[in-house]
């Protein structure tokens, strides 16, 4: 039974650049992109949560939860979050992960995990937007919504 449940959720056969495949016969809702990559500069790579390999990212590619993005020194990219339009610029020699949407009891919501390197974030309307960033050492919360959820 567990296997039967797990199989529809396993998007076998999709490339690293593609969105995770959604079986047409399944009732599982289609995965919603958390963000999109824009303004790529230099070597930017992406690793899907279901993939083992890194592949070169392209402009406009959607990012889903647990996907990772890395940049080489001198490279960069912008992440535009779908939920509220907040934008994060990823600097060179950086590694980030898109956080899970699933809420965890007692833990604040996270949008992004920065494992290495630098991000510059911008919220045009912090009174309505929010962004939560995790690092190995801290949790950073910007905007108001994150607190008032």
């Amino acid at each position: 039974m567990l296997l039967a449940l797990a199989l529809p959720a396993s998007p076998l056969g999709c490339t690293a650049e593609d969105a995770p495949a959604v079986p047409t016969t399944s009732t599982t809702p289609a995965p919603v992109p958390r963000a999109h990559l824009r303004g790529l500069k230099g070597n930017v790579q992406i690793k899907r949560s279901i993939a083992d390999e890194w592949s070169t990212a392209s402009d406009g590619v959607p990012l889903f939860e647990n996907d990772k993005v890395r940049t080489e020194a001198g490279a960069g990219a912008d992440l535009v979050f779908s939920g509220n339009g907040s934008m994060v610029h990823l600097g060179g020699d950086s590694l980030i992960g898109i956080a899970e949407t699933r809420p965890r009891p007692g833990r604040p919501r996270t949008d992004l995990t920065v494992l290495r390197g630098r991000i510059d974030a911008e919220l045009e309307r912090p009174s309505t937007q929010s962004l939560s960033v995790n690092t190995p050492a801290a949790t950073i919360q910007a905007g108001r919504e994150i607190v008032f959820q």
Binding site: L123, Q129, T135
Partner: peptide
């Protein structure tokens, strides 16, 4: 607007 940077 809110702008900030995080460096790890």
């Amino acid at each position: 607007p809110s702008t900030f940077s995080v460096h790890v």
